[in-house]
Computed example of a mutant assay.
Amino acid sequence: MVNKKMIFVLILAFTLLLTGCGSNANDENKNDKEEAFTIGVIPVQTVGEMEMAMDKLQTILTKELNRDVSVEVYPDYNGVVEAMNYNKIDMAYFGPLTYVVAHEKSGAKAIITQLIDGEPFYHSYIITHKDSPLNSIDDLVANSKDIDFAFGDINSTSGSLIPSIELKDRGVFESEDVNQFKSVRYTGSHDATALAVQNQQVGAGAIDSAIYNQLVDSGKIDGSLFKTIWQSEKLFQYPWAVHKDTNDVTIQKLKDAFLAIEDEEILGAFGASGFTEASNEDFESIRQAAIKQGIINE
């Protein structure tokens, strides 16, 4: 009788031990799953306009990575660079300029970019209202003292860096405080610049061509009210870049997920027709422009 009791106690203890181990394993798996993969996104449009598209992107990536994914639209471009620099995010959607800065500061690696009409390129535009007497950049330069000019975010490639170099080369712009314009302002986003031109709050402004076209197509601005008076050379599109310590398996899963995206709302948030692979070498011309402006060192 005693032996049976002892056997029963041993079986019970062994069962409880296995249950405890299983519980610990489940807890560990649960904790692993709850460790979110974090993505920071620059505000190519005002934050509210992008939230629904980013929620959809978050759902897709959570499924493909089999891991919780958190996508956050930051209020300004530099905030995303600093988040990557201080290891607060695992991946970021950068402008080309903010990418080369982040690559220099923290080793961020470009892996994906968007396609516009099948090509990974866009332009910087300078736009004005259709009723403006300005018809070319020569007109803008000649009449600069009478023009209120708008850039986007100060860290934007097409909304600031590239047009500021053009205007600097033409002798009418050095900085927000040193220039030949009636006034210079930074609106913070491409859609804000477009609306400022449309509402004739400024005489001209710099904008991303793809975002401009997307704003027209979506009806957020009236394309009939604008003139494009300058267009830059081709610029390589905005990259999605991962933290330097991201493993190859995760990178491949991210690439596969982005390359498969066909959701019109997600694509529309970036004025894109699809996604394609990218690398650091694709942004060498932007790096050289940033060196020219003293933003990074050679």
Rank of each mutant, 00 (worst) to 15 (best):
N29M: 14
S232G: 01
D76C: 08
G107V: 06
E51N: 12
R170K: 08
I295H: 04
Q288E: 15
Q114V: 15
G48E: 08
I39H: 01
L254S: 00
G107N: 01
A290Q: 04
N66K: 11
A272S: 05
A272G: 08
I39A: 11
L235H: 04
K88F: 10
I60K: 02
E174Y: 12
E28Y: 08
F236P: 03
D32E: 11
Q114P: 11
F14H: 14
N213E: 10
P96L: 10
A25C: 13
Q45L: 13
S156K: 00
E166V: 02
F8V: 14
S158W: 02
N143P: 02
F258W: 00
M6L: 09
D138K: 09
F173V: 07
L254Y: 07
Y186T: 08
K4V: 13
S23T: 10
K227I: 06
I137A: 06
Y74N: 15
H243C: 14
L235W: 01
V216D: 08
E72Q: 12
P96E: 00
G294R: 15
P133K: 13
I126D: 06
A92G: 11
G107Q: 02
G203F: 02
L134C: 11
D256N: 10
S189N: 11
N29V: 11
G203P: 00
F275C: 07
Q231L: 09
